[in-house]
């Protein structure tokens, strides 16, 4: 167990924030999460958004109303302490450093493992990165992401010129299909289910599709 000092809590909207904590000697691979604890015994996994060479750890968190952990984390102040497990995970966009071709598709805070990858391996750019949020203000680190030549943003509840209006699954036709590409999907369950099905229907092998669900669409969130 690690005790990490809070450095900053930066809200981008009322419900979305970046939690920055001291790194201590935490070692991780992009895609890893840690379980963060509230002041009691409850813990939840959160994906690390920082690069593996950064001095701090970053988490992109959606504050769930009355959520036992996310709500508590949202109320932290610089200097507070947070308990965290060692990093672990089963979603590894970082495996592509071996020269694999990859495609990233995220919704909401699901961009965190991809930001970690892009920050850790800035020269290993995915063939395509699709990111879906409801409104422009909900997009995390858009400036950084828009530097990628192959980044597309989908806004489901707002029309903004130069961005796709609709759910990110409306952009599936842009996805290159090849047997050696790995497809990494992270965020909302319905996006992941729909995209996995679309990929399999288009001949992509199940073994090339990697999933990480953070949130469920039909919850009262």
């Amino acid at each position: 167990m690690n005790t990490l000092t809070v450095l900053n809590v930066i809200f981008i909207t009322d419900e979305l924030f970046e939690l920055q904590v001291e790194r201590g000697d935490v070692q991780f691979e992009p895609g890893a999460c840690v379980a963060l604890f509230n002041n009691g015994d409850e813990s939840r996994p959160y994906s690390i958004a920082a690069g593996s060479e950064e001095d701090i750890l970053r988490f992109l968190i959606r504050r769930v109303p009355n959520g036992l952990v996310s709500d508590w984390l949202a109320q932290r102040k610089p200097g507070d302490l947070v308990q965290a497990s060692a990093p672990f995970g089963w979603f590894r966009p970082g495996r592509s450093v071996n020269g694999e071709r990859s495609i990233f598709i995220a919704t909401g805070t699901g961009i965190a493992p991809f930001l970690s990858y892009l920050r850790s391996y800035p020269l290993q750019i995915p063939e395509l990165c699709l990111y879906g949020v409801r409104r422009l203000e909900e997009g995390f680190n858009l400036k950084e992401l828009q530097n990628l030549y192959n980044f597309r943003l989908a806004l489901s509840q707002e029309e903004v010129s130069s961005h796709f209006h609709g759910r990110v699954t409306g952009l599936l036709e842009l996805i290159p299909l090849a047997t050696d590409i790995h497809y990494y999907l992270c965020g909302l369950d319905t996006m992941i289910d729909e995209t996995s099905k679309w990929l399999e229907d288009h001949g992509v092998a199940y073994t090339q599709i990697h999933r990480e669900i953070f949130f469920y669409e039909d919850a009262t969130l």
């Binding site: 379980a35 965290a84 497990s85």
Partner: peptide, 9 residues
């Protein structure tokens, strides 16, 4: 019955 959960050790 193992009390397992994410991050547990």
């Amino acid at each position: 019955f193992e009390g397992s959960k994410p991050g547990d050790n």
